[in-house]
Write a protein that binds this DNA or RNA. Structure first.
Lengths: 236, 236
DNA sequence: CGCCGACTTGAAGAATTTCAAGGTGTGTGG
DNA sequence: CCACACACCTTGAAATTCTTCAAGTCGGCG
């Protein structure tokens, strides 16, 4: 019996492709670890020695220029997979934003296990293809959208991911009185790092939306979307 | 005996994971097609009915805003795979830049075949992981680099991909007198679409590099890199 | 020779960044 | 309980970069 039996992401992470015996075999080479906000699991340019499943918390993937400008190139949520199997170096750092629990495997161990369990590798492929789609959509935002449109797009995505109504909203049946509320997992600086903007621009755009009545900002991290339609119009 | 026997990318495309019998089985459900410059294989938002291997030529993946701004989110070279298996819609258009030859499979056929040939799915996974790495690197460029740095980065990548010395240069043993020459596969407008810049900005940056003596531009599409070092400094 | 598309160049304008203060709110120690 | 420090956020004004708009120029091709 392994700790996987009670894992909250066992039905969604790539290990969901495994049967109980296989789970047990895999868990034998893994270990759990809790990361505090700011703690990193992998560093840009370093040897990619480990891979992991995220169980709880949020992590960021970041890439930086030599002179220290940083870009967040991905956000990682529970059940997501991080690390670079079949490659020797990680091209980005992986850092916890909240307290984050991960399930870690040596890259070599994982590769060996994955190659003998095609169903799990298939799950990883599907996940990677989705992530590539999401990343490319993000490129349109970075390359062609104004600060305004970026923030609107960002808030919509966060609303879908984080509001109590949750991802189910994407079905299109938003409540008529759609007061979507959530807490941002990112600081203003980090939002800037996601969107390719400075912290000042992010702040100005947030407060512009607030004074237009489209959103409310009850506290630093809290957001209430008053007018989802308007936000969608602005996002383009 | 199938046309795969003489395929120029047979050692590099994902089908290289297959043995001769398997190749034959796969080729039975595929067909070749030649696309003229500007012709598309898939359209953004449409059902993703087919997937393909690129045999010859270059293609672009593009995503657009409602009002027509376009971002190139990927470039596809021979031996690369295009299309979105295991997903119902393509999030971007796939369009030939040169005369391009592709080897097309119905998505359903491909998925079925892939799932019963883990070695090929593994190749696809490796390819997808590499593409995701490359895409994330590109995000750093779009989010944080100046026009100047973008063009320098772009020219370096093109030099590596296209110069007669070829990708082998990445080993680090550039010739002392490094006159790297190549023809761009993209127009100025398309370079802008890759970099998230306007055609005018691209043109100005190119000509700035030219008047600084770092590159030469013998014709519209031709580029000679005179000073690779300087370009690397500018790229950051 | 002249047209056309692709590229270049200039000047004005807009958006975002940069630099510089000024708030706000939370936790800690007095 | 208050005061202070600190981190984070906001706001303003100037500077910069890139875009936009508007002419040109170049080179190939009928």
């Amino acid at each position: 019996m392994s700790y996987c039996d009670t894992c909250v992401v066992r039905n969604r992470a790539i290990c969901s492709a495994l049967d109980p015996n296989e789970i047990e075999a895999m868990s034998a080479s893994g270990r759990r670890r809790v990361l505090q906000p700011g703690q990193s699991l992998l560093w840009e340019g370093d040897e990619s020695a480990i891979v992991a499943n995220v169980i709880r918390g949020i992590m960021k993937l970041t890439s930086s220029t030599e002179d220290g400008r940083e870009q967040i190139v991905g956000l990682v949520y529970p059940a997501d997979f991080v690390g670079r199997p079949y490659g020797s170096t990680s091209l980005y750092s992986v850092t916890a934003l909240d307290e984050t629990e991960v399930c870690i495997y040596g890259r070599g161990d994982f590769e060996q296990f994955a190659q003998s369990h095609p169903a799990m590798e298939h799950k990883l492929l599907e996940r990677t293809l989705s992530e590539l789609d999401r990343t490319r959509r993000w490129m349109l935002l970075l390359g062609r959208k104004s600060a305004n449109e970026r923030i609107a797009s960002f808030l919509l995505e966060m609303a879908d991911r984080l509001s109590p109504h949750g991802a189910g909203l994407s079905g299109g049946c938003a409540p008529v009185d759609d007061h979507i509320a959530f807490d941002l997992p990112l600081s203003r600086q980090q939002i800037g790092d996601v969107q390719g903007l400075t912290i000042e621009t992010v702040s100005r755009q947030f407060n512009r939306l607030k004074s237009d009545g489209i959103i409310a900002l009850p506290s630093r991290r809290a957001v209430i979307v008053n007018d989802r339609e308007a936000l969608m119009d602005l996002a383009g």
